[in-house]
């Protein structure tokens, strides 16, 4: 396996430089920062005029879906709400959902994977079989069941459910990595010096697992965003939050799918592009972490 020991600042900077060498990574970062800007600017339109409020604002002069105009750059939806402000608000929701859900599932997955790998035996079997059970259940459907259990989903319960159901994949990888680290000299040395389990895990294992966990996080972010959008699209989203999936649902259910491209195209493009950007960043990070994939492989 590859060497993953990043300790100190030097290697980190080196990694960053390696990352920037990858054009895919750079492109991903650029797209992502555009979305970040969108999320920040989402607070602006409602301040200009209350009719630009993405959820509640209705243009008093419009009663049907209108194509783009000076007043509404991307047009309006079926009841006169501004599509551009919805799109901006959607970016904010995507970041919230994606990053919090991914962070939670990564933290959960890393710790459980590390525990399983480090202690082995019964702990390992229990945790990994639980992981199996969760992985076998189709996420979307379990979410549907839980949705009716929770009496409707708020965006936060969606986040928590995604986190709870998406840790097993991470924990498997982390477990494998822990297994290979466990027998390295520096861990053996720490053991010989009488360090406690907690200390070994936190000081010696965790720092070496973080980069890998971080890599998986980029993939989890995309998964979370896509799951939220899919849920909303199927009609199981949080109806009080303006997300891109929700926007698609509205176009679909109100019968504007094939006649209002100004309404149908933007949310779909945004969902696809934001997942693409996280994916690109993930790919670039993979190259940094796994030297075998680097450009200079022949050297």
């Amino acid at each position: 396996m590859s060497e993953l020991g990043f300790e100190g600042k030097g290697p980190l900077r080196e990694a960053w430089e390696l990352f920037l060498e990858s054009s895919i990574g750079k492109a991903g970062l650029i797209i992502l920062s555009i979305f970040a800007l969108m999320a920040i600017f989402s607070f602006v339109p409602p301040m200009i005029d209350p009719m630009y409020h993405p959820m509640k604002g209705v243009d008093p002069e419009i009663t049907t879906s209108q194509p783009p105009s000076l007043r509404h750059w991307l047009g309006t939806d079926f009841m006169g709400r501004d599509i551009l402000s919805q799109l901006l608000a959607g970016a904010r929701v995507a970041f919230l959902v994606g990053i919090t859900a991914a962070l939670m599932s990564i933290i959960l997955g890393t710790f459980l994977g590390m525990l399983a790998g480090y202690f082995g035996g019964v702990v390992d079997t229990l945790l990994m079989r639980t992981a199996d059970v969760i992985m076998v259940l189709p996420t979307l459907l379990v979410i549907l069941v839980l949705a009716s259990l929770f009496k409707g989903l708020s965006i936060w319960s969606i986040v928590i459910i995604i986190a709870l159901f998406r840790w097993p994949g991470v924990s498997r990888v982390i477990r494998a990595q822990t297994l290979s680290l466990k027998n390295r000299p520096f861990v053996e040395a720490a053991k010989a010096l009488g360090a406690s389990h907690l200390r070994i895990m936190m000081r010696h294992l965790l720092p070496n697992l973080v980069p890998l966990a971080f890599l998986y996080m980029t993939f989890r972010v995309t998964a979370a965003i896509v799951i939220e959008a899919a849920l909303a699209f199927l009609g199981f989203g949080d109806p009080t939050t303006v997300s891109w999936g929700m926007m698609l649902q509205w176009v679909w259910k109100t019968g504007h799918m094939f006649k209002a491209p100004y309404w149908l195209l933007p949310p779909g493009i945004c969902i696809s592009l934001i997942t693409l950007s996280f994916y690109m960043i993930g790919r670039a990070m993979e190259q940094v972490l796994d030297p075998r994939l680097r450009k200079d492989w022949e050297g």
């Binding site: 079926f78 009841m79 409707g152 009609g235 109806p239 649902q249 509205w250 259910k253 109100t254």
Partner: peptide, 11 residues
């Protein structure tokens, strides 16, 4: 009910 079930009622 949610907007997809009955948009008019939700609105």
């Amino acid at each position: 009910p949610p907007a997809d079930y009955d948009p008019v009622r939700a609105m």
